[in-house]
Design a protein around this nucleic acid. Sequence first.
DNA 1: GTCGAACTGGGACGAGCGTCCCACTTTCCC
DNA 2: GGGAAAGTGGGACGCTCGTCCCAGTTCGAC
Lengths: 198, 198
Amino acid sequence: MPRMSAAERRPALIEAGLRVIAREGIAGASTRAIVAEAGMSLASFHYAFASREAFLDELIASVVAREEAAVLPVAEGEGDLRDLLEAGLAGYLDHLRADPAHEQAMLELTQYALRDPDRHPLATAQYRRYAELAEQALTLAAERTGATWRRPVAEVAAVLVAFTDGITMTWLVHRDDAAARATALAAADALARMADPQ
Amino acid sequence: MPRMSAAERRPALIEAGLRVIAREGIAGASTRAIVAEAGMSLASFHYAFASREAFLDELIASVVAREEAAVLPVAEGEGDLRDLLEAGLAGYLDHLRADPAHEQAMLELTQYALRDPDRHPLATAQYRRYAELAEQALTLAAERTGATWRRPVAEVAAVLVAFTDGITMTWLVHRDDAAARATALAAADALARMADPQ
DNA sequence: GTCGAACTGGGACGAGCGTCCCACTTTCCC
DNA sequence: GGGAAAGTGGGACGCTCGTCCCAGTTCGAC
């Protein structure tokens, strides 16, 4: 293994950790599995991180920080707000179908954080990030269609996050594209009705 | 420990296992933790179950089979379909607030089942059960208000399950009752619009 | 009362885990 | 070029895990 500074090693280990978690789940993400994935020795892991827990905390924080908007209003939006939202959710479904392991890993990380009171803030931060991205998408969608949200955008964003989460979970279970699309349609409808003109 | 047949021991262990999972998560549900909760010896566990995996499989199947409808239309429903659905979801939120550990455990069991291809059917069965219960509630709600679903009830039920799931997840993260209620309102609205008269 | 089956408790096993230690090598700075 | 700091590899630790074994006890059937 070529020499590498601890500062370089940390992100490399986090990437490896994410791959392992996506593949085997958090339970399978042992220190040995992670260093094997990264092609490092066990000592390097504990040289870069104080403990596995500290590693997972940093992994969650880092993956949340760089999370990008998955629900994006399409650029050349034709139609009204509802259509735009529906297209955005359809885009999210494509993203989910393309890399289900990633979303599953994020769900697992949330539940891991939810278990320990000390780690609960990590889960909150994760969902605040989701809400932030949702808010951006919703604001953009309203601008594009000349609509205005009747409720604070943050509130609408919370609804969008919840709906997206539910769609993700049920799709991961059933892998039923048609059902997911139908739910997305209903969700877009509900969201559009929270704006003027309806 | 008083003498007990393997047939009696199995449900007792499953109850104990559920309590442990609700309290500590699936990762904390070791065979030793479970028998300690049940007040039994380790040998009794493997006398009643072939393995921990077989135990968890049976635990999931049993808890899914006896799952009851959490989203129920209130009996003395006044108002239209939307109001009834909203009241039903509010009832679910009360249920969730009263015993969050149970819903969190169910989510964790789903993800556990989702990880192993052999166990995937357990997750599917769980969500099929949810859909079944949702379908009953939706049918009842439509009857009570004289409404008719424009789409197959099964499809509407899938939407309800997804929305409920999303509401659960975000509430578990933020514990924000107001936000959950707002999302429930939007969800009820979306569902009501899938029926005639709207 | 006897006998075989059902059940119990405790201890042991091998394996995997997170973590640590230590001798060694490389790098960088004065 | 010498010496401190940074990074490396392998092996070992103590612990927990799932599982198994086995001697002993209790039960129901005859």
